[in-house]
Design a protein around this nucleic acid. Structure first.
Lengths: 150, 150
DNA sequence: TTAAGTGCAAATATTTTGCTGTCAC
DNA sequence: GTGACAGCAAAATATTTGCACTTAA
């Protein structure tokens, strides 16, 4: 049984090699940033962090690489309820999808894994004869602390 | 038992009146466009259609009104997998939430109502002690026609 | 070698804001 | 009458693109 994807470092680079996608220093830096991120990053944050690894990285290369990663199904794009502007956030796509919850009061982002979510997607597959490739469930509301303090 | 919200025309205007939110000709035009839309519209499309009802409507008024409607929980904001650019789409919020499926090949948007979706949200409420106010489930993949032709 | 990738600058797309005048209540 | 709303123009934000140069394979 393979290890869960979370525990394989360099998995993104490995994927590029497997599919014969060219590797550059800039891409290496960007992939590294995404692989080691411990929270959701937007394009500007990815740029800044990648430039610390390789100062040459340009903003447009970040966007081009993000588009590539999306097409390859390696990252997911999130809005996180637009708590901060209109941009998008990115995170590695792991073996198991999860739900994102954003607290509209304190801005905290929470993640939640649920078998019911998988069942729901299976229902879409069978009831709608729709082949699911990507899915995104984002919920906005109040977290436990904020709802009690209300 | 009240009629489903879908069947109450002028419901958005009624909501404004109930909450003492000022009604203007411009808002009337924008609300009318949203209420009578038979597909998902983005800000530019709403502007264009609203201007046909009242030529004075300005782009900024559209955005300001959309923000107001969002805050009032009267409309939902969608990405529809960004099939056409980076903008957002809007639709009236009805009594029952639904899932949006976007075919990545033909661009068709489908909607699906599922009790499992409601159950999943209830699970988030209880397991995470998170009070759900808005939720958005968007799925990208291949529709029945496109998957068979593949 | 050469097709793919990059930086740079400029363009495009989307949304917001400041300000002054107008209008709903 | 007055506070909320509107138009307009400009700014802010987010993303994409054209093109000449560079580089991975």
């Amino acid at each position: 049984m393979p290890l869960p994807q979370t525990e394989i470092p360099g998995r993104l680079q490995a994927h590029f090699a497997e599919r014969g996608i060219r590797m550059t220093e800039q891409r290496r830096a960007i992939l590294r940033v995404i692989e080691t991120a411990n929270k959701h990053l937007d394009a500007s944050q990815i740029l800044r962090k990648a430039q610390r690894l390789d100062a040459r990285v340009d903003r447009s290369t970040v966007y081009r690489t993000l588009r590539l990663l999306k097409r390859q199904g390696l990252i997911d794009e999130l809005d996180l309820m637009h708590l901060n502007g209109e941009g998008h956030y990115y995170e590695r796509r792991l073996a198991k999808d999860h739900i994102h919850m954003a607290c509209l009061r304190c801005g905290k982002i929470m993640e939640f894994v649920s078998d019911q979510f998988d069942k729901l997607k299976q229902q879409v597959e069978s009831d709608c004869r729709f082949h699911v490739l990507v899915s995104r469930l984002e919920i906005g509301g109040y977290c436990a602390s904020c709802r009690s303090g209300h």
